[in-house]
Amino acid sequence: MKLEIFDPAMCCSTGVCGPSVDPELTRFASAVFSLQKKGFQIERYNLANDPGKFTENKKASDFLHEKGPDALPIVLMDGEVVMNSSYPSNTQLSEWFDIDKDELKEQPKSNSVTINISDLKK
């Protein structure tokens, strides 16, 4: 199975950049990263960075001409439009790829720091 996401124009490939990040984009980018690490074929195309991908794909091109860029994103599964105007939920992704949805949750990073108070008094 191949999943292709045609994103609206964003400042970077995932939209997870800049001073105020949309939590939905963070969730989706994390889920896509998790799926890609498991070997699933997922491609994302940003209208600002990859306009050629939109013109090369007839479904994406037709959608963009009919609905306009405000209706993005569109999600294609094996070449067929399965969603538009929003990103798939983790539940939908887990069903499509037949995995447990907990495997798509953003894993907290363990960045522990040990400070020895006696060293600070020197």
Score class of each variant (00 low, 15 high):
Ser112His: 13
Pro73Ile: 06
Lys2Trp: 03
Pro51Cys: 02
Leu25Phe: 12
Phe28Lys: 12
Lys101Pro: 07
Leu72Ser: 04
Ile5Ser: 12
Asn111Leu: 13
Gln36Ala: 12
Glu80His: 09
Gly52Asp: 03
Asp100Cys: 01
Val82Asp: 00
Leu76Gln: 04
Ala48Gln: 11
Met77Lys: 15
Phe28Tyr: 15
Leu104Phe: 01
Ile117Arg: 11
Glu95Lys: 06
Val32Leu: 05
Glu56Asn: 14
Ile99Lys: 02
Ser86His: 14
Pro8Asp: 14
Lys109Phe: 13
Tyr87Phe: 10
Lys58Gln: 13
Asp119Glu: 15
Tyr45Met: 00
Asp50His: 15
Phe97Val: 01
Val81His: 05
Cys12Asp: 05
Glu66Pro: 07
Gly15Asn: 00
Asp100Gln: 03
Met1Ile: 07
Phe33Gln: 13
Gln36Thr: 13
Thr91Leu: 10
Gly52Thr: 03
Leu47His: 00
Lys67Tyr: 14
Leu3Asn: 09
Glu66His: 14
Gln107Asn: 07
Thr14Ile: 10
Leu120Tyr: 00
Ser110Ala: 12
Ile74Phe: 00
Ile117Asn: 04
Leu72Ile: 04
Leu35Ile: 06
Leu35Tyr: 02
Ala48Pro: 03
Gln41Asp: 15
Val16Gln: 02
Ser30Gly: 13
Thr14Ser: 15
Leu120Lys: 04
Leu76Ser: 05
Ala9Val: 08
Glu66Ile: 09
Asp62Ala: 00
Lys105Leu: 14
Phe6Glu: 03
Glu80Ser: 09
Phe6Arg: 12
Asp70Lys: 12
Pro88Thr: 01
Glu66Arg: 14
Asp50Ile: 08
Lys38Gly: 06
Ala9Cys: 15
Asp70Val: 07
Lys109His: 09
Pro108Ala: 05
Ala9Asn: 10
Leu35Trp: 05
Ser110Trp: 06
Ser30Arg: 03
Phe28Asn: 11
Leu64Val: 01
Ala31Ile: 03
Gln41Tyr: 08
Ile115His: 07
Thr55Trp: 05
Leu93Val: 05
Thr26Cys: 13
Cys12Trp: 11
Thr14Val: 10
Asn116Gly: 04
Gly18Asn: 15
Pro88Gly: 03
Pro108Gln: 08
Gly18Lys: 11
Lys109Gln: 11
Lys109Ala: 12
Val81Cys: 14
Asn90Trp: 04
Phe6His: 11
Ile115Pro: 03
Val21Pro: 09
Pro23Asp: 01
Ser86Leu: 08
Leu93Asp: 02
Asp22His: 06
Gln41Asn: 10
Glu4Cys: 03
Ala9Leu: 09
Asp78Val: 02
Phe54Trp: 01
Lys121Ile: 10
Met10Ser: 09
Ser86Gly: 09
Arg27Asp: 13
Lys58Glu: 15
Ala31His: 01
Met83Asn: 10
Thr114Gly: 09
Glu4Leu: 05
Glu80Ala: 06
Thr55Tyr: 02
Leu35Cys: 04
Asp50Gln: 09
Gln107Thr: 11
Asn116Leu: 13
Asp50Cys: 13
Asn90Glu: 06
Phe6Ala: 08
Gly15Arg: 02
Thr55Lys: 15
Val75Ser: 03
Lys109Trp: 02
Gln36Pro: 02
Asn49Ala: 14
Ile117Lys: 11
Asn111Pro: 04
Leu93Ala: 01
Lys59Gln: 10
Leu93Phe: 02
Phe40Glu: 01
Pro23Arg: 12
Lys67Met: 12
Val82Phe: 02
Phe63Asn: 00
Ala29Pro: 04
Lys67Ser: 05
Ala31Pro: 06
Gln92Met: 10
